[in-house]
Design a protein around this nucleic acid. Structure first.
Length: 105
DNA sequence: AGCTTGACTGTGG
DNA sequence: ACCACAGCCAAGC
């Protein structure tokens, strides 16, 4: 596949339960190391169309980047349900970050 | 065919 | 820890 969009979707759909990925990571695996913002944009507009586990995507700090309070809390709850622990408002990326590596694709 | 926008990220004060 | 700036690039207008 070639479309950046489809690669992003592919990667996100492959994030296992109990793990998370950052926008930058996903962008890198999709072939655009600098396309973190596009990943965010795609989630924003396609999460409803593609049934994506958007809640497993967070920013580089391990925080939820959503501005809408209701959605942000919903995401945190979903992650907790999958066994992901929050240190305050942050996720421990060292433990819960999913890194498939280049050999997986 | 431009211009604007953003669920980002790294750097620097 | 917090704020400001500057690259980044696809989608939407």
């Amino acid at each position: 596949m070639e479309a950046f969009t489809q690669k992003v979707v592919f990667v996100i759909q492959h994030i296992p339960s109990g793990k998370v990925m950052t926008y930058g990571q996903i962008a890198a695996h999709a072939g655009s190391p600098r396309g973190a913002r596009q990943v965010a944009r795609l989630l924003h507009s396609m999460s409803s169309k593609y049934n994506l586990p958007w809640h497993r995507v967070i920013n580089a700090e391990g925080r939820i980047s959503i501005q809408d309070e209701v959605r942000r809390e919903a995401q945190e709850q979903l992650l907790r349900d999958e066994g992901i622990e929050f240190s305050g408002a942050k996720v421990d990326l060292a433990k819960f970050r999913y890194d498939p590596g280049q050999d997986s694709f």
